[in-house]
């Protein structure tokens, strides 16, 4: 049982960047835009965050740089899909490939260079007892991700701006006809998604492994995209989903490294678990009585007011 706390602490580290990126994507999708470029934006955020940390040693500045880099590349996606009405799926995939290449190019001079990990937010005296470590033992982005779950829930559910954003995602023509700027709202959402993906990417060198490695996000951007569907576009379910995935990813390693009964589970089964969980959730969603998936009605459709 002594292991529960270390497992939880590792799990939080694994889950938080995915949660941050997924929260950004949730807002983008709620506005009716499907941006599959999360992985690419995260990588660009990771190298920007790494470089800022390397030169300044200020992790907060590094997070801001990660966010700014994420916004910059997300706006490329925005111009293409919102102003030029290109296909969102193809453009998003292209953004991932572009981000992977761009980050590798920008990161080339930084190989063999370590950086400092971001220190926990609270003074270490607070986290000496194992129980307090569970609460006070993390760096700022972890608390940021939890606060953002609440903020986004409140924003989408309780505020007028959130309502407008949802309207744009559910019925763009109606929102347009009563005078809201569909493209403007979507630009804002895409930029927000880019900022969150950039912060999530910067978390990799700042929290998890203080180095720059090409493709260091290793597919976690895709998990973030999948989680949004998994959570049926609800922030609190996203939190649960991210921690569930984090738990599976972490338990796999703790089970394999230990000698308890869990270490007898074959590694193939561990590797398959997240996918099994995804299928199970998708089946559960489709079994819902009203038959709705809760997907925004205009998701992925270009806005063409003249039609």
């Amino acid at each position: 049982m002594d292991l529960l706390i270390p497992i939880f602490v590792t799990l939080v580290g694994a889950a938080s960047p995915i949660l941050i990126a997924a929260l950004g994507e949730l807002v983008v999708e709620k506005a009716g835009v499907l941006n599959l470029g999360v992985e690419g934006m995260m990588l660009v955020g990771a190298i920007a965050g790494f470089a800022a940390q390397f030169y300044t040693g200020n992790p907060y500045f590094a997070l801001v740089c990660g966010a700014a880099a994420g916004v910059a590349v997300s706006l490329i996606f925005g111009v293409l899909t919102l102003s030029l009405s290109t296909n969102q799926t193809a453009t998003g995939l292209a953004l991932t490939i572009f981000g992977t290449g761009l980050s590798a190019l920008a990161g080339a001079p930084f190989s063999a260079r370590p950086v400092q990990l971001m220190a926990p937010l609270f003074p270490p005296e607070l986290a000496t007892h194992p129980i307090w470590r569970v609460i006070f033992g993390y760096a700022a982005p972890v608390y940021f991700s939890l606060i953002m779950v609440f903020v986004l829930w409140y924003f989408l559910k309780k505020t007028r701006s959130g309502l407008i954003l949802r309207a744009v995602g559910e019925n763009d023509l109606s929102a347009h006809s009563i005078g809201y700027s569909v493209v403007g709202v979507r630009y804002a959402a895409v930029a927000f998604g880019g900022a969150m993906a950039g912060i999530a990417g910067a978390c990799f060198p700042l929290l998890l492994t203080p180095q720059w490695a090409e493709r260091m996000t290793a597919g976690r951007g895709w998990i973030a995209v999948a989680l949004v569907v998994f959570a049926s576009w609800r922030p609190f379910r996203l939190l649960a989903g991210a921690y569930l995935f984090g738990l599976v990813m972490t338990m796999e390693l703790y089970a394999k490294a230990g000698s308890g009964p869990l270490s007898a589970i074959p590694s193939e089964l561990w590797a398959a678990l997240p996918y099994l969980a995804t299928i199970a959730v998708l089946v559960l969603i489709s079994l819902r009585r009203d038959g709705s998936t809760n997907a925004p009605a205009c998701l992925g459709k270009p806005f063409m007011p003249s039609n």
Binding site: A213, M249, A257
Partner: peptide, 18 residues
């Protein structure tokens, strides 16, 4: 995998914790 730095790091954490 040959290259998934966060997973390698977490594997190391899982080992040291045990």
């Amino acid at each position: 995998t040959w290259n998934d730095p966060p997973k390698e790091a977490d594997a190391a954490r899982a080992m040291i914790d045990q």
